[in-house]
Design a protein around this nucleic acid. Structure first.
Length: 105
DNA sequence: GGGGTGACGCGTC
DNA sequence: CGACGCGCCACCC
């Protein structure tokens, strides 16, 4: 039922396939409204179930991880993405190739 | 009930 | 090209 924005966001993040990344705006849009970009960041910050919420697959518009706190403390998430086969151009993800496309439901 | 903050996005200067 | 501010919505206290 009326799942909170957080719940919706978590679902979207959980839907991100392996070896792909999504942007906050993308997740927000899939969650319901692209303006939730901020809420997405907040939701990932809460990340109550990192075991099912690969927040590290969520990057900002630049394809770069959050400049503020990078989960784990550092480029930790970047390393995880690389481990999935995601290529990085410097510190930015090759969005053109790995940005998760909108799976039209 | 109200206020403050925030892991963003975009536009504009 | 680079930097700054504003706005949107939700959560927490």
């Amino acid at each position: 039922m009326e799942q909170s924005a957080f719940e919706k966001i978590y679902e979207v993040v959980k839907q991100i396939p392996y070896g792909q990344v999504a942007t906050y705006g993308q997740v927000a849009a899939l969650a319901g409204n692209k303006r939730w970009a901020r809420v997405v960041g907040y939701a990932l910050h809460a990340n109550p179930d990192p075991d099912h919420i690969p927040c590290y697959r969520v990057v900002n518009r630049e394809g770069r991880v959050s400049d503020a706190f990078a989960f784990g403390g550092g480029n930790r998430q970047v390393e995880l993405l690389k481990a999935e086969g995601v290529e990085f151009v410097g510190d930015c993800v090759d969005m053109e190739q790995y940005q998760w496309e909108r799976p039209v439901y």
